[in-house]
Structure formats: structure tokens, C-alpha cells
């Protein structure tokens, strides 16, 4: 009798097993593929020397060829919901500043970051994947080229140029304890449907303290940040 009951209960295991959905593409769909790099997972200190491997925060969005923000395709959930863990009062404005300023939406505290009370819902949001990521995109109209940009950042990703103890106000200050360390990096390419494959190229690194949306090209100051991704490819499906 015990075994019959336990078998009945264990049958829930079968229900718990999940079938994986898949994306299906049609002509002129875009397939955005992010291939993770050697530094996609970064050790984040939790407590008493215990560390957790965290993937980066990132955003992918569209601009027109004049640099005007159009729409966000995907943003990771922590920045979209202000659901940071163990950040205290730190809003993490240094996380993805180029995306924040390009969006240009200022919240009640004067920062360009979504809040818990006003999360950003106008795009796809999810927990950052720990492996390669694919997004399917279908444009309503393809009569004009668009620019796809992507910004990636790890927290506590210190190096000699962006150390943890940098003082606020210094050019290399990146949020202090729990801050970014190395600033966010931005990739971009223009999709004009003349080619079948586009590789987003590194175009700059963001403001270290997140106070502006400017981009800088002093890549010699970046070390592991340049290895967060291996490539971002946009393929036109035929």
C-alpha cells in the first residue's frame, strides 16, 4: 500500500518534466544570436566568501541611422524590474547607461533607470541566460535601415583601471562597492537587408559611473569585459 501511494506521488515527476518550445522562422525574419564568451559568467560575492557565478545584464535595442532610440527588443530582468539582490540603496545607474540615456525616460528620482514601482515592460524580459541566447525578430516594415545596438555589463568586474576603491568623482569611479568595475560595453551594426549576416562590432564602452550616455573608445582599459561575449550575429532568414 505504501508503494502504491508513493508511486502515485512519484508520477508527478512525469508531469514536472517539461517539453521545450522552439522558435520557427519565416522569410525575412531576423535571428539574433548571442554567443557567450570566456567571461560570460562572473563570480559575484554573496556572503562569507561564498561566490555565485552570475551572467551579465544586457539590453538589445533599435535606433534609426541618425542615432535616435526607437524601441527595446530585450532587456534582462534585474534592470527592467530593479530586482537587484544585495545592492542596498544603490540603483546601479552604472549598469547599462548608454541604453538608459538613449531611451531617455527619466524616473521620479531623476535617474534613467526603471524602478520596482515602474518596471520596464515594453520589450521581452527574462532572467539572463547562462548560455547562448537567440531572439527572433520580425520587422513590420523593411523599407529603411535600422541600427541594432547591444550593451553588456557585469557587476563587481574590477580591474587595475577601474578598481573597487576608486573615489567618487574620479574618472574611473564605477559605482563603488557593488558597482560595475569595468564599464558596460556596446556593440552595434546597421541592418539594411543588403547582406544575409551581420556581426555587431564593439563601438565603445559606456560611462564608468553611469552619469552620462556617452561612449568612449579607450578599450585598452578593458580586460575581461571584452570577453563577455564571443559574438553577436544577426542573420536574415531566407
Amino acid at each position: 500500500m505504501h508503494i502504491k501511494i508513493l508511486c502515485f506521488l512519484l508520477s508527478f515527476i512525469g508531469i514536472g518534466a517539461c517539453s521545450n518550445p522552439s522558435l520557427s522562422y519565416t522569410n525575412n525574419n531576423l535571428k539574433i544570436e548571442i554567443k557567450t564568451g570566456a567571461h560570460w559568467l562572473h563570480e559575484f560575492p554573496i556572503l562569507f566568501g561564498i561566490k555565485k557565478e552570475n551572467p551579465p545584464q544586457f539590453a538589445i535595442w533599435l535606433e534609426d541611422t541618425l542615432g535616435n532610440y526607437l524601441s527595446t527588443i530585450y532587456v534582462t530582468s534585474k534592470i527592467a524590474n530593479e530586482s537587484w539582490l544585495a545592492n542596498g540603496d544603490n540603483r546601479r545607474q552604472e549598469a547599462l547607461p548608454h541604453w538608459c540615456f538613449q531611451r531617455g525616460v527619466k524616473y521620479t528620482d531623476g535617474l534613467y533607470l526603471p524602478t520596482k514601482e515602474n518596471p520596464f515592460t515594453d520589450c521581452i524580459t527574462g532572467a539572463t541566460p547562462k548560455t547562448n541566447k537567440t531572439i527572433q525578430l520580425d520587422f513590420e516594415k523593411v523599407d529603411e535601415p535600422v541600427v541594432i545596438k547591444a550593451e553588456f555589463n557585469h557587476s563587481t568586474d574590477w580591474n587595475d583601471y577601474f578598481p573597487e576603491k576608486a573615489k567618487k568623482g574620479n574618472a574611473n569611479y564605477s559605482g563603488g562597492k557593488g558597482g560595475s568595475g569595468q564599464p558596460a560595453i556596446v556593440y552595434s551594426d546597421t541592418i539594411d537587408y543588403q547582406n544575409s549576416v551581420y556581426q555587431l562590432e564593439l563601438i565603445g564602452r559606456s560611462s564608468a559611473d553611469g552619469s552620462t550616455g556617452d561612449l568612449y573608445n579607450d578599450f585598452e582599459k578593458l580586460t575581461s569585459a571584452k570577453e563577455i561575449i564571443e559574438s553577436i550575429k544577426v542573420e536574415v532568414v531566407e
Binding site: N20, P21, S22, L23, L62, L70, S71, I73, Y74, D122, C123, I124, T125, G126, A127, P129, K133, T134, I135, Q136, L137, D138, F139, E140, V146
Partner: peptide, 15 residues
């Protein structure tokens, strides 16, 4: 998960 606006429809598999 999918999202649609005036510019595009985006679809992704989330977990």
C-alpha cells in the same frame, strides 16, 4: 515570450 509594437514582433524562449 513575445512582444509586439509598431516596429517589430520579437520572440524569445525564456525559462
Amino acid at each position: 515570450e513575445s512582444y509586439h509594437n509598431q516596429y517589430f514582433t520579437a520572440i524569445s524562449i525564456e525559462k
